[in-house]
């Protein structure tokens, strides 16, 4: 009996996804249009923004920290672009259900479309910021190697992780609006627990902090991303396994929580 119900759920999920896939694309396209409408440089801002931030931060941190990282600009922009992808996707997703309340109250739309759409939107922005990454790499003369071609793998891992995390976040935010305010602080802590503006060596001597960092999913994605992009290193089998496990586990958890919560969304938005 319960097996039959699960089958039906799966069937419904599949037919919904097929039917509403155009909506997913349209909503993402809408977000992009609105984001850049009436700005003179338009979509070029997606490229300039990370470049300018990189310029400011590399200047500040190479003065302040006296960090010795080879090709620091490349090192930084690789980490920060992946981080920005994650932070944008989850922050936007968090609000996505609440801000689509007008729609949810009036038409039947599968609700996971909304966080999913925000993740897709963030992924598209990330793709544009990759142009900035390439510019910095060429400018700094980072050696371009064959492992570069593997870059979609860490992005995919991170994307799946983003979807899972967004599902959890968006569902919980409907019930507890405090999360909106808390999440900004969490992100600030989180970014400092990810080696983005500082090299990993800096924290290796502090075993407590280092072990916390090792529990941070973003650490693995960022490391993977840098390994293939600038270090010409092939991530090991176990590194892949860790990434796959983190992302799929988060996705599964997200799907379960979201599925449980979504039936009552309408009463709370």
């Amino acid at each position: 009996m319960s097996n039959c119900k699960a089958m039906n759920d799966m069937k419904l999920f599949y037919s919904d996804l097929k039917k509403f896939f155009p909506l997913l694309l349209n909503l993402s396209a809408k977000d992009i249009k609105i984001k850049y409408r009436r700005s003179v440089l338009g979509i070029l801002w997606s490229i300039f923004n990370p470049l300018l931030t990189m310029l400011v931060l590399t200047q500040v941190f190479s003065m302040l920290l006296k960090v010795q990282v080879e090709n620091f600009a490349t090192y930084y922009i690789l980490g920060s672009s992946l981080w920005n992808f994650f932070s944008e996707a989850t922050t936007l997703s968090m609000m996505s259900i609440i801000s689509s309340s007008a729609l949810i109250k009036k038409v039947y739309v599968p609700k996971y479309i909304f966080p999913l759409e925000k993740c897709l939107f963030a992924l598209i922005n990330f793709a544009f910021s990759m142009v900035a990454v390439v510019v910095v790499m060429l400018f700094q003369g980072t050696k371009l190697t064959a492992t570069l071609l593997l870059f979609p793998i860490p992005v995919l891992y991170c994307f799946v992780f983003c979807i899972g995390f967004s599902l959890i976040l968006s569902a919980l935010t409907v019930y507890f609006r405090d999360i909106m305010h808390l999440y900004g602080i969490l992100l600030t802590i989180w970014i400092y627990l990810t080696p983005i503006i500082y090299p990993e060596e800096l924290i290796k001597h502090n075993s407590v902090i280092y072990s916390i960092v090792k529990c941070n999913p973003m650490y693995y994605f960022v490391k993977y991303f840098r390994d293939v992009m600038m270090y010409n290193a092939l991530p090991t089998f176990s590194e892949n396994l860790i990434c796959i496990f983190i992302s799929l586990f988060t996705l599964l958890l997200g799907a379960i929580i979201f599925n449980k919560a979504e039936k009552k969304f309408i009463l709370h938005i």
């Binding site: 039917k19 809408k30 729609l103 009036k106 038409v107």
Partner: peptide, 29 residues
């Protein structure tokens, strides 16, 4: 469903864009 017309409209978009958006809200390609 005609429950409140224009539920899926985004007021920043033009009518042309909204027609396509709303169509996809109702599940049309």
């Amino acid at each position: 469903p005609l429950i409140e017309l224009g539920a899926g409209f985004d007021m920043d978009l033009t009518a042309r864009e909204n027609i396509y958006l709303n169509g996809s809200v109702l599940g049309y390609s």
